[in-house]
């Protein structure tokens, strides 16, 4: 397993919306590396003849009939929102440009 650079760790932390100060980063980097190395052990196995699987059991997915319900959930939906206005959740202004 190659060693991760601090930049890569920052990038991954940023994707997960985690923030580290320098102290924590110094402490965390080797720990993170250790976890990766542990998982990387799996790569030592020869899986050439093993079908990839993503699900441990082979029971097929159960489908739900297309029947709708109107729960009128507006009040419940926003009940615990930190910031709300009327029926809306409110977040800091985000715009994709």
């Amino acid at each position: 397993m190659k060693n991760l650079t601090p930049d890569e760790i920052h990038h991954i932390a940023n994707l997960a919306r985690l923030r580290f100060d320098q102290n924590k980063l110094t402490k965390f980097s080797p720990e993170f590396q250790k976890i990766l190395n542990y998982i990387a052990k799996l790569q030592e196995l020869n899986v050439d003849k093993v079908e990839p699987y993503v699900w441990p059991l082979e029971d097929p997915l159960k489908l739900r009939e297309d029947v709708s319900q109107k729960l009128n959930y507006a009040a419940d939906a926003v009940k615990n929102a930190p910031v709300k206005e009327g029926d809306y959740f409110i977040v800091p202004r985000v715009i994709n440009e």
Binding site: R64, S68, K70, L71, N72, Y73, A74, A77, D87
Partner: peptide
């Protein structure tokens, strides 16, 4: 989920 697919309903009312 069972929530109804709608257009222009009361905001967040068609949720669960």
């Amino acid at each position: 989920c069972h929530c109804k697919v709608t257009f222009l309903e009361r905001p967040n009312s068609m949720t669960c």
